[in-house]
Design a protein around this nucleic acid. Structure first.
Lengths: 254, 254
DNA sequence: CTATGTGTTCATCATTCCCGAACGGCGGGT
DNA sequence: ACCCGCCGTTCGGGAATGATGAACACATAG
């Protein structure tokens, strides 16, 4: 897991352990959390009390919930990047034109994070929303990004996160993935044919900065029935590429 | 500031102090933060290192940024509540019909938090977005909520947060506010005539649960020039009330 | 009226973090 | 080139501080 810091502040770690557990088990109580985390009840209680006092956690009838204050931090994070603001209108017009689901993903710490998602009229329903984190190796978006990362970085990411197989079409071999990444660089487009979710395909293009480093990726996703032939292999890629181009241009002048 | 917990975990407090400061001063370095917070550099450094290791903070060329992981927590918080999902479509149709800015606010810890915002075609630009926190006493949304809170709770909130005057129209007298809250209960609608932002007016209605406790408030906001007469005092309130009704109904059956 | 489940309080002790001071690298004056 | 100032980073010792289990108050159920 990489190198570790010299003086890790333990309480910070436990704080976020508690918060993350609380996200999973919304409305949990002190005891439930203490069991889940193998921490003494009193410790959990102290943390929760402090968090409540600081308004990061809300207590309702003895059950705890994450506080709205996180919206603040989360919103800020999203808007920090011009990427969101710049990409959003382009995504909307793609959604309107294709009626499908349009996604924007960025890489952080070797994982993909959905930053924005716009739904066309026929858009499939996928559970994941803004902020959701996914592995990079088995999504079109992730591969589009990986293709433009330096090779040692790609290796590092695979070392750290492995190559899980979410469906039978997932790529699980490192060599195979690298071959595919090379193809993606050639074509400028990545495809995902049911690699992450059965029945779901997508086309994805990277958004690059002036030095061709990936700052994100843009995709159109839909059911396999609609995502095939000309449309998947040529129409959508063209649409995405020109959108990515506009975004890249706008980003460099701001 | 209310009663304090018995064993406040100091590190939790400083952790979030650092994070909040980092939100304000995005891209700050160790020294800048340490000055801002009156903490030794090394302490700040230790915290930041841990936060980085835990992926809540990203370091770029020695400058720090909030990590996208907060999107995760923030998104979750917003979606926790059915309120968002239920209200969103109603808000969109109001935005379309009025061309103005439609807001959804909930109360937490005596403050108002914007949970959702939908923009009509003519919508004014207001800086505040999702997650933004405001005082309750001088916004239409806040007053709509206060009007349906028990009186002792209202007093508590004023005690804790005071009654700041953001514009010359802001209400700063406790008695005056209470009179207005009574009026709001009578009418079922709250108005904000440039009380928080000069030139900006709004009409707001509360969203109530079965026991008439406020779970949020809905508003239409626009420039004073468009928000007056019939439209402000009767058309918009009617529209808002019926939307709130639909939301309230949907919420009770889910 | 016990029995088990909460959330909460409290005092103890040693762990853990606080913090000053020193290091090393970078960049910009002069 | 030099030095100075500024930055992020490292280190270690001492003491504040959070971890902890046991006990408490309260509810709910058998």
């Amino acid at each position: 897991m990489g190198k570790r810091a010299n003086n890790p502040v333990k309480s910070v770690v436990t704080t976020f352990d508690i918060l993350q557990t609380l996200r999973r088990l919304d409305g949990a109580g002190v005891t439930e959390l203490s069991n889940e985390l193998d921490l003494p009840k009193s410790s959990v209680y102290n943390y929760l009390s402090t968090l409540e006092q600081e308004e990061y956690v809300v207590k309702e009838d003895g059950t705890y919930h994450l506080g709205l204050r996180f919206l603040d931090l989360g919103r800020y994070v999203r808007e920090r990047d011009d990427l969101y603001e710049t990409a959003r209108p382009e995504m909307e017009s793609i959604a309107e034109e294709t009626d499908e689901l349009v996604n924007l993903l960025v890489e952080e710490h070797g994982q993909g994070v959905y930053v924005c998602r716009v739904r066309g009229d026929q858009a499939v329903n996928v559970a994941a929303g803004t902020g959701h984190r996914v592995a990079l190796h088995n999504t079109g978006l992730g591969k589009a990004i990986l293709a433009y990362l330096p090779e040692n970085r790609v290796d590092e990411i695979i070392d750290n996160h492995g190559m899980s197989a979410d469906t039978e079409h997932s790529i699980t071999d490192r060599g195979e993935l690298k071959d595919e990444l090379a193809e993606i660089r050639d074509r400028g487009v990545a495809f995902d044919r049911e690699e992450r979710i059965g029945g779901l395909c997508c086309a994805a293009v990277p958004i690059l900065d002036l030095e061709d480093r990936p700052i994100g990726a843009l995709s159109v996703a839909g059911p396999t029935s609609r995502m095939k032939g000309e449309r998947l292999e040529s129409d959508l890629p063209e649409l995405l590429k020109s959108a990515a181009n506009v975004i890249e241009l706008n980003l460099t002048y701001s």
